[in-house]
Design a protein around this nucleic acid. Structure first.
Lengths: 171, 171
DNA sequence: TCTTTTTAGGAAGTATGCTACGTTATTTTT
DNA sequence: AAAAATAACGTAGCATACTTCCTAAAAAGA
């Protein structure tokens, strides 16, 4: 009983501690992550302004660039967006002639997505620009900090994967 | 001349190293950050499903909750979104009666935003849920890892602030 | 004072990223 | 084989988050 009380008290303490800690926007991890996401979008857009492409669009194309074919859902999941968002992105990429959406012979519900030669060329063209955006994003860090950041981010994404609305590896 | 050549060679090496490093989605910091951002949105939505509020909406309200008044631009910048996105969010919050948009007497262009009693109550109601979402997001980390993550994120956001499309402290 | 520039906001357009609902096709269960 | 569950996709709707172009007001400079 005594122990239980002590635990409850400790939990209350932790809770109010966290409430205090997260009181300012600047101390909320979620806020910092949102800001960094915005910054990456900005850097990516700047590097790729001639190509007019977004990180998600490039992500999809670079998955397809190895020559694999897959349905819309698999493709969406492999870049970590939900089915509907993915379908939108795919539609826009099709409109630009960077990929094909073929009806599957095996499964009449599915659309099989494959990259076009134009799309493959596009990927190789954009890849160095994407890499520059990534490099700029983490440029302020030392090598040790970058390694630590990547380790922690991967840990968080792996551990919380099911909390996302577009969890990976579900299908 | 020899030195210049060496430097150029080194740069080429670094570049191809980075190209190789960022080849897989999973090793792109921008990708990991986007995923973690999604995860936070998911956790926040889960905690606040009864209230139907987003992190940005809550961010705005919690800035206003101290009783300050400000124009739309200042408010938008203080939570790190651009003018237009901010105006949209403010419109929705006004529709729900959580804040007022009054024409400024001093500057006839500006709208002065202030929180309503209902809005203030809302903030206090939601604050613990927001804190729980933050806590869940970083729950997989040790205290040392959390401290390191926050330090690195702040460093990145500060250093890259101007790269964002909604830089802070500009106005 | 008058002109120029800057600033606050509105409106329209686009992309990402969801939820919810419906349709059709496939798979599983009975 | 028929019924039920599941799965892939489509459509509609909403929120965030930008861009660009516009108007009107304020500030700065000549």
């Amino acid at each position: 009983m005594e122990e239980k009380k002590a635990v409850a008290l400790q939990e209350t303490k932790n809770k109010s501690l966290k409430n205090r800690k997260f009181r300012e926007l600047w101390n909320r991890p979620g806020y910092l992550i949102r800001r960094l996401h915005q910054i990456h979008l900005g850097l990516f857009a700047e590097e790729c302004k001639d190509e007019d492409v977004t990180p998600v669009q490039f992500g999809m194309l670079s998955v397809l660039a190895s020559g694999v074919e897959m349905d819309q859902l698999t493709l969406s999941m492999s870049v970590g967006v939900d089915r509907v968002s993915g379908a939108d992105v795919i539609k826009r990429l099709e409109r630009r002639g960077l990929l094909h959406r073929n009806r599957s012979e095996v499964d009449k519900r599915a659309r099989v997505i494959c990259i076009t030669p134009k799309g493959a060329e596009f990927v190789e063209n954009v890849r160095p620009k994407m890499a520059r955006a990534q490099a700029k994003l983490v440029a302020p860090l030392t090598e040790e900090e970058l390694a630590e950041l990547e380790r922690i981010l991967k840990k968080l994404v792996e551990a919380n994967n099911d909390a996302s609305r577009a969890p990976l590896g579900v299908n």
